[in-house]
Structure formats: structure tokens, C-alpha cells
Design a protein around this nucleic acid. Structure first.
Lengths: 225, 225
DNA sequence: AGCAAAAAGCCAACCTGATTGTTTGTTATC
DNA sequence: GATAACAAACAATCAGGTTGGCTTTTTGCT
């Protein structure tokens, strides 16, 4: 609703992983934590939330379970970190790709949408999706997921808005376009394996893209205006 | 691709639950199985796939775990039945509601889309979604899920096509509209708790509806034509 | 029709393996 | 010497599946 214009992705950067620590122990600790988080992503992506165990994560990270529980005392604590890490990492890559886009492709060819789609095909989003769905029913996870997810989405909107100045004169249409893009693309992702024919999925993405272009041009009126 | 025009939902009716058996044992067996399936739906909806255990299902069904394993020898077997049952039950209700719609509301007000949305808010779809997402990573579940899901979707398309004859002259647009509706609505469902403001979700549904109307009227061209 | 064997529905106890978190110990760094 | 990184063993719980037994219903035979 009242979006802080100063909200940036940088504010959401996971703590304790960023700066190269001064001493040996800090560097080692960060390195191990990153290995654990990456292993957790792999684990969530390959085996799903239901079969993601602390044992498996430690094994995939190449350390003992005891060592892992030294860095993340409980599974919950680890999952919370994975949540932050996956969202931040994916968004960082996505925004970088968006910003690297030539203005012509971004504005006229709607290339940002394909880049968003690609960001949904990453390991990071696969892990995030597992947590998003699990949070629908897992009360403990839900409590840590929902506030974070809402926060992330606000930051995402603000950052993307900065990358797409051509939408700035119609914030209502922009929010609708974002919601529409997110829902359509993530819905498509859910059906990726069910809808076998590739052309069909390509056509759907093209249609979503077309609808967004028309929304921006005003050809498709925002309902409620 | 080559859709059998004779495909009906009735062909997908779960076996062993339909007819009122002649003798006492058959009736009792069906009754218990239904209690188990309904309990499994509740369990998936409330606790998610990760925490859906045979113990919990039996407890919620009001029978012993031994009794349950008499009817469904393994958890996998049970899950496969839940899969069929949830899809069939939801689709049956959805199609009945669609068919009961006055032609004016269906054609001119696009009321079918709201009915589809309501079908996504059911216990049955919540359970189905859990299985759909779990099947992305669980190899065993995937093997039974994917063929069934593809089959179900084909039947769904054929049945809905029968209920929407006004689309019949443009099968390409119809398939795109179905894909678009499914992806958009299910994507919205995923974000239902994250996007707190109700108006925002209502607006998105209205936009999807508008886009579909324009697709039917030809105002939004099918990409690739 | 009557009766015994077979089968079905159901339950409780058991077994094996897996999971989480704790505790204890060892080595290297501060 | 205190602390941090790590490992291994331990304890408690809980998962899925098997077995044996009990009661009721069905079936087959006379």
C-alpha cells in the first residue's frame, strides 16, 4: 500500500555472510555456512521439503551433522536462513540481468518478462517454492515465512519499478502488471511437467507478455478505474 | 494434441467407491475407504504433504492404523487413491456448477472463471496442490502423478469445452485461454496469503477475466498466428 | 435350512530404520 | 586459557510396514 520509495534489496541482504571477516575463523565460518545453504538448496530442489533432513543437508555439504548444528542450532533456524538466502540470491541475479538489458529490448520487446521466467527456473526458486508451499500448512514455518515473503515482495516491486521507469506514471497498472506476471509465470511453472508440449508453454508466456504490453499501453483497462 | 472427443470425466471416476455394493461388507468397506480418503484430504490440507503420516490419517478417520492398512496396503497406494479422488471430486463439483450457470452469465459475464477460482479454494484442491508440488521432487510420487495429471487435464479440457460451446470455433484460442486461466488462478492461489489486500487479488482475477474475454473476441491475437 | 470353513473388517503389539537434538570430546585459533 | 570449528556417539521420538488375533459376515457343502 504505502511503499517506502527508499526500500532496496540491499537492506535484505542476509547477515553474517557478506563481509570477508578479518580473522581466519570468521572466514571459515562464512565459507561453511555458504556450503550448508547451498547444500540445503540442492536438497530442497532435489528431494523436496518433505525429504529434506538435516542429515542429508550435512552430507551434501560435506560436513558432519554436528558441525552443521554448530552453525545452525535447529532445523528451523537453518530453514529461515535458506529462505532469506534463496530470495536474495535469485533477486540479485534477476535485477542484475534486468539492469544489463538494453533499453530497447526492455521497453519494446518486453525482454524483462523472459528474464523473470528464467529466474524461476533456478535452483534458488525451486527451493523457495518448496518453502512457500510448505508454509501454507506448517504453522512454524508460516510464522517466519509470511512476514519475510511480504517484505521481500515489497522490495522486489520497488527495485523492479526502478528498473522499469516507463511504468512510473501509472502505479496502479504497474502493481497489477507485477501481480499478473508473478501469478501467471509461477502458475505456468507449476504445470511445466504436466503440459508437455513446449510450444504451448511458449505461447502462454507470449500471451502473458502481450497482455502486459497492452496493459501498459492502456489498451487493456485496469479494472476498477 | 489429438484429443479424443469422447473423453469424459466419468471415465476417470475412482473405482471401488461408486456403486452401492450388494452385501454388507462391500458397503462397509466403501464407507471406511471414503472416511480414509476424506481424512487424508484434511490431513494434506492442514498439515501438508511433509507431515501427512499414516498414523495421523487413521486417527482423523477414526479407525486404527491397522484397519487403514487393510484397505490401503501402503502409503503410496493410499496417496494414489487420494490423487484420483481429489481431482474427480473437485472437477465433478466444478462442472456441475458450470452447467448450472445461466447462459447469459456464462457467456457475457465470464462467471465460469469465478467458479473455477472457487474450485481452487476447496479442501480437495488444497490436497491436490500438495501432491502436485510434492510430485516435482518425489520420484515415486512423480511416476504415479504425472500420467494421471496429464490424463485429468485432458478430460478437464474436453468437459469444459463441452460446457463452453462459444469457444468451439477457435480451438487454439480455447486451449490458450484454459492454460492462461489455470496458470493465472493457481499462481494467484500461491500468493493468496502473501498478497494481503483483498482488492488486489480481486483486481487480478478481474484482469485475467478481461484478458480471456478479449482473447475470445479476437482483440488479443493468439501469438503465433 | 443348517453348519462349518473361509474370508473380510478391524485392532493392538511389535520391529526396523530414520530423524532431531543433546552431549561429550578433539583440534585449531584467538 | 578461553573460544570456535568440527566430529561422533547417544537418547528419545516417530515413521512405515508386518504379524497374530478377534469378531462378524459370507460362502460352500451336506
Amino acid at each position: 500500500m504505502s511503499e517506502l520509495p527508499t526500500m532496496t534489496l540491499a537492506q535484505l541482504e542476509p547477515e553474517g555472510l557478506d563481509a570477508e571477516g578479518q580473522n581466519w575463523q570468521q572466514r571459515k565460518s562464512i565459507q561453511t555456512r555458504l556450503a550448508i545453504l547451498e547444500a540445503a538448496i540442492d536438497c530442497l530442489q532435489e528431494h523436496g521439503f518433505a525429504r529434506t533432513t538435516t542429515q542429508l543437508i550435512a552430507q551434501m555439504a560435506g560436513i558432519s551433522r554436528g558441525a552443521m548444528l554448530h552453525h545452525y542450532a535447529t532445523k528451523q533456524e537453518l530453514i529461515a536462513s535458506v529462505l532469506e538466502y534463496t530470495f536474495f540470491k535469485r533477486m540479485e541475479k534477476f535485477l542484475a540481468a534486468i539492469r544489463d538489458l538494453p533499453e530497447d529490448e526492455r521497453v519494446n520487446r518486453n525482454a524483462g518478462i523472459e528474464i523473470y521466467w528464467e529466474s524461476l527456473l533456478t535452483r534458488e526458486f525451486a527451493a523457495y517454492l518448496e518453502l512457500m508451499v510448505a508454509a501454507r500448512t506448517d504453522a512454524e514455518l508460516r510464522e517466519i515465512f509470511l512476514p519475510k515473503a511480504r517484505h521481500y515482495e515489497r522490495a522486489e516491486r520497488a527495485e523492479v519499478a526502478r528498473a522499469f521507469p516507463e511504468w512510473q506514471d501509472d502505479p496502479g497498472a504497474y502493481e497489477l502488471a507485477m501481480d499478473f506476471c508473478i501469478a501467471g509465470m509461477q502458475g505456468l511453472l507449476l504445470h511445466r511437467d504436466i503440459w508437455e508440449e513446449r510450444e504451448r508453454r511458449v505461447r502462454l508466456r507470449a500471451f502473458i507478455s502481450t497482455a502486459i504490453v497492452m496493459l501498459r499501453s492502456g489498451a487493456l483497462k485496469t479494472p476498477g478505474d
